[in-house]
Amino acid sequence: MVWAPSPSGAGLLARFGRGNATAPFAPAKPLRARRAGSALSMRALAVPMLLFLALMVALPLGYAVWLSLTDFRFGQEAGFIGLRNYRAMLYDPDFWNGLYVTFYLYVLSLGLQLVFGCYLGMLLNRLRFGRRFLQTVLMSPFLLPPVVIGMMWLVILDPSLGAANWILQSLGLPPSLWLASPRIVVPVFALLDTWQWTPFVALLVLGGLQTMPDGIADAAAIDGARGMSMLRYITLPLLMPTLFIAVVLRSVDLLRFFDLIYITTQGGPGTASQTLNVYAFRRGLEFFDMGYASALMITLAAVVFGVVLALSRFRRLAEW
């Protein structure tokens, strides 16, 4: 089977979804059997990339692991202290706060983006004309630089002069502190991320809907499926593999949420929006507490991979 470039993330699925019926790596065998000499071996072509990865990724990663076992502070000698950094984390309220903020933001944003993304994707799928234009417009939020997004919302959400409070007041509602309020700062970030990334989920959903065989929906319609029942029993179940891709991709980005927060609030007010990633960064590059920061970052990486693994395990159990 050849993987056609499909807009539904099917390439990713084909390579890593083990539940997939068609084995993606199968057709190599007969060729390899009659391989004559090195003429057919293309392995050399991958060597530069692997070398680059070894030097720029694997080596620094190993160094980070080693750092996390030391009490290294920038400009001082590093002393090996075993797992003491990891133990210290357990008693560090900022670590637990970071973990809490990370997951609060993650769950809230992911939920909002899936709901709105499905709605928007289905709307796009229904459109007779103007779809091309809308698709292009929808790409802009998540392809704009995070710095721009941050600056834009800082100006709009300014508590005293911003347009957002002006709108609230015109509607007779009390003004809000937005990003300066410790109580609502995380939901506000969830909304901003939803503004930015819902279009991405919608484009994935649209891709999934367009590769869906028409026959199924038609047959269900003949059997009397309408509106909600069509959505509940036909569209959503068929959309599950696409939504899985969307969830994985968004999870990876949301769990290491950094840019927008560091640009706007730096984790504030106080530590109210200090995700684990922001905390690790500040600990390492503002306080130069690099041993401990490395331990925090490795923990964060473990959290990201843990969630991705759990998701793919869940996918295999659910069998679609």
């Binding site: 160094y63 980070a64 290491r256 990633n277 390492g284 690099m290 990201v304």
Partner: peptide, 8 residues
């Protein structure tokens, strides 16, 4: 996470 690389 990018922070994991940036420190080393």
């Amino acid at each position: 996470p990018g922070t994991l690389f940036v420190l080393p």
